[in-house]
């Protein structure tokens, strides 16, 4: 039935999709505004949306907020960079050598699903609530995302191209640069995109749970001191940060793969 109803509507009044999206967001804000105003939800637990947004505006004028946001983003960027570099180097080396690939496969399959939060007690003992704690968790979680994608990418190299390069006596380095890297790049970029959002999650988690300075800790402090509106405002900020990370990672993906058939439109 739904198919029959939507088909004519879609062809008739076609509201553009971005407008619908904005409408959806407006609806969300309206619902969050109405629930506490109408007394359906206790305002002490869920303040009206306008109060949250007002608090958000207030936060944006505070120096501490920007310090915390800087700490979160700094930790995220450093951890992500380390994980990407380590993942790419290890992935290209392991993936390029058949023997290493066979020998390490079981170990990687075993280490990868270990939840990074299992390491929390250990990093707390070793580093306490210093930024190093968050860094260890971020790098551990993001590294596997990159490594696994790079391994897929290196395995995807066309054997004919590889043999051609060998016939032409390309040096090992040239093979990596001219053959392996272009094939693996789409996978590397996918790994980067996955790692970017995982790294943000772990950074905020570490701040919230271990007390590493940053937005996550601010959320924890606001919640335990009963500043409900501020808690929500900061959660919204973290969500927007996540959206920004996802969007920019997708942008990087498109830029880095401009030449690739999956992005190019003219083929």
């Amino acid at each position: 039935m739904t198919g029959a109803v939507t088909a004519p509507r879609a062809s008739r009044g076609r509201i553009p999709e971005p407008a619908l999206g904005v409408l959806g967001l407006a609806l969300l804000v309206a619902v969050v505004e109405a629930l506490p105003r109408l007394g359906l939800v206790d305002g002490r637990f869920l303040p009206p949306a306008t109060a949250m947004l007002g608090e958000l505006g207030h936060q944006l004028r505070l120096a501490e907020f920007w310090v915390a946001a800087g700490q979160t983003l700094g930790g995220w960027a450093l951890g992500l960079a380390l994980a990407v570099v380590a993942g790419v180097v290890v992935g290209v080396v392991i993936g390029g050598v058949g023997f290493l690939r066979a020998v390490t496969a079981s170990t990687i399959e075993f280490l990868r699903p270990i939840p990074s939060v299992a390491l929390i007690p250990l990093v707390v003992l070793v580093h306490g609530s210093r930024p190093e704690s968050a860094l260890v968790l971020v790098v551990y979680a993001a590294f596997w995302q990159v490594l696994v994608q790079v391994l897929y990418g290196v395995a995807d190299v066309d054997p004919v191209v590889r043999d051609t390069a060998r016939s032409y006596r390309f040096s090992r380095w040239t093979v990596v640069r001219a053959v392996v890297w272009p094939t693996a790049l789409p996978y590397v970029v996918t790994g980067f995109r996955l790692a970017a959002s995982v790294a943000l999650i772990l950074e905020v988690t570490a701040e919230l749970i271990i007390g590493v300075p940053g937005l996550g800790r601010s959320i924890g402090v606001a919640q335990s001191s009963g500043a409900v509106t501020q808690t929500y405002a900061l959660v919204i900020v973290v969500g927007l940060l996540g959206v920004a990370v996802n969007t920019s990672a997708r942008f990087v993906e498109r830029r880095a793969l401009r030449w690739h058939t999956s992005v190019r439109r003219d083929l």
Binding site: G24, L25, L27, V204, L208, Q223, T231, G239, G242, N246
Partner: peptide, 29 residues
């Protein structure tokens, strides 16, 4: 449903981007 999808997409993008552990303090409220 095309309309429903377009309506929900940005909201879902936002909700998904919130790191899940942050839900703990909110639920605790």
């Amino acid at each position: 449903d095309r309309v429903l999808r377009a309506l929900c997409e940005p909201v879902l993008e936002f909700l998904r981007a919130i790191p899940p552990p942050v839900l703990v303090p909110v639920i605790a409220l």
